[in-house]
């Protein structure tokens, strides 16, 4: 019961920061989503010690553990695009998979090669890449 109350209170804090993020994005016309700005704000508050890790930890780990859940209702909206899909769906799927694969490989390989080069240069910690 006590744990439940703590999680609810922590959720309120996270919710407030989310609202603050959306408000600032709107007010300052920033090119990023409000929830991402909320994340940046919380990170800043943790870094400066204004917010202690204990205040948000329980609710955060719960939400992150079930992050995928929140995308399911949004994805169900794809059912409205049935006609478009049957028209040229196969091409669209190829475009999406092809461009996603290129992006995943470029991001992953570039960062891995650079990170390993740096790790090799800065310390002798050898990582098993096999």
């Amino acid at each position: 019961m006590k744990k439940f109350v703590i999680i609810i209170l922590q959720l309120c804090l996270l919710w407030f920061l989310n609202e603050l993020g959306y408000f600032l994005v709107e007010a300052l016309n920033l090119p990023l989503p409000g929830n991402v700005l909320g994340m940046v704000i919380l990170f800043g508050l943790l870094m400066t010690g204004v917010v202690s890790l204990k205040w948000v930890e329980e609710a955060s780990s719960f939400l992150i553990k079930h992050l995928a859940f929140f995308f399911i209702p949004i994805a169900v909206g794809l059912m409205n695009f049935g006609p478009l899909f049957f028209q040229n769906g196969i091409f669209l799927v190829i475009v999406i998979i092809g461009s996603a694969a290129v992006g995943i490989y470029v991001t992953g390989l570039v960062s891995q090669v650079l990170a390993e080069k740096k790790e090799g240069a800065s310390d002798d910690r050898s990582r098993d890449t096999a």
Binding site: L11, L14, W15, L17, N18, E19, G21, Y22, P33, G34, N35, V36, G38, M39, V40, I41, L42, F43, L46, M47, L53, V56, E57, A59, S60, S61, L63, I64, H66, L67, F70, F71
Partner: peptide, 14 residues
């Protein structure tokens, strides 16, 4: 709760 869940990503980041 999707918004608050995104905000929560600051915790592992920290």
């Amino acid at each position: 709760l999707l918004g608050p869940a995104t905000v929560a990503l600051a915790v592992p980041l920290y």
